[in-house]
């Protein structure tokens, strides 16, 4: 198994993973479902004069992505407080706003005051609700660590997916039969063929595999059947897009850690079973 990085951004990661499809899909599912992330889980609403009901407001609060610190926080079920909620497993975010400006104001995620200065919403500009003159909004919210298999608000990535590594073969002997300029290569929706003026076999640009979607429009349009589109069984182009709740390196490392733990657990369970081999 090896990883080759194509593109690295603070929010987007693209890499080639050389492994079997089962491993690749397990990795994808673990990152999507198992990596723990913080989100608001409980809200005590003290005063709400806004046009939104308490439940809708609470749901909106839960959806706000919060920057997570995996080192210093535990799961509430596994915490030493026994699930009651303490400073080791939950973060309190408070909001106390009264609109006496005479205009309509927008309450944003920047108005949430956290008791841990590191655990704050990803962006301060996320709109929560609008308040008219004279109304107020007071609540106390508790953010906990959770896994996305319990609720989508605990998702660490916005999108994760993989595609096959393309292998395109061009048969030059068949190309010689063609007397005109290559038509098939002009049908590529991503323009991955080199533009040539002479009658010869088409050439692909060097890093075509980064962009090719295996749509097969080139092989379908070729009158001689010279272009053959295939894919590699053991190579996948992954792309991970993060919300900003965790750095992408941490997501990857945590993903592999969980993967290893799961495999070890599976091994232990297998050894406990007494299977008779015939």
């Amino acid at each position: 198994m090896s990883i080759e990085i194509i593109e690295k951004d603070d929010r987007l990661y693209r890499f080639v993973l050389s492994t079997s499809i089962e491993m690749a899909n397990a990795f994808r599912r673990i990152i999507l479902i198992e990596v723990p992330v913080m989100a608001i889980d409980e809200v005590i609403m003290l005063r709400n004069d806004s046009p939104l009901y308490d439940e809708i407001l609470t749901h909106r609060l839960a959806m706000i992505p919060i920057i997570t610190d995996l080192k210093n926080y535990n799961f509430q079920q596994e915490c030493s407080c026994g699930g009651a909620g303490c400073s080791l497993c939950s973060v309190t975010l408070t909001c106390d706003i009264k609109n006496d400006t005479g205009e309509i104001i927008l309450v944003t995620s920047g108005d949430l005051i956290s008791n841990d200065p590191k655990i704050v919403p990803v962006s301060p500009n996320i709109p929560i609700v609008k308040l008219e003159h004279g109304s107020s909004l007071t609540f106390e919210a508790f953010a906990l660590l959770g896994r996305a298999k319990d609720h989508a608000k605990f998702q660490s990535v916005a999108a994760i997916g993989y595609k096959f590594y393309p292998k395109i073969k061009i048969d030059e002997n068949k190309c010689k039969k063609c007397v005109q300029k290559c038509i098939a290569s002009q049908y590529c929706p991503k323009n991955l063929f080199k533009v040539g003026t002479e009658v010869s076999s088409p050439k692909l640009i060097p890093d075509f595999w980064k962009y090719c979607d295996l749509c097969e429009s080139c092989s379908r349009e070729c009158p001689e059947g010279a272009i053959n589109v295939e894919y590699d069984d053991n190579k996948f182009i992954f792309s991970i897009e993060s919300d900003g709740v965790l750095p992408l390196d941490t997501i990857m490392k945590k993903g592999w850690e969980i993967f290893k733990e799961k495999i070890d657990d599976f091994k232990d369970q297998l050894e406990k079973l007494e299977i008779e081999i015939i």
């Binding site: 046009p51 939104l52 809708i56 909106r60 959806m63 706000i64 992505p65 990803v122 962006s123 500009n125 996320i126 709109p127 609700v129 609008k130 989508a152 998702q155 916005a158 999108a159 897009e241 919300d243 900003g244």
Partner: peptide, 20 residues
């Protein structure tokens, strides 16, 4: 009513992008 905070399908944060 008011712009949803995340995309319904993929979960990307879009609430803060509506105003810009």
């Amino acid at each position: 009513m008011i712009i949803p905070i995340r995309c319904f399908s993929c979960g990307k944060l879009i609430g803060d992008l509506y105003e810009p």
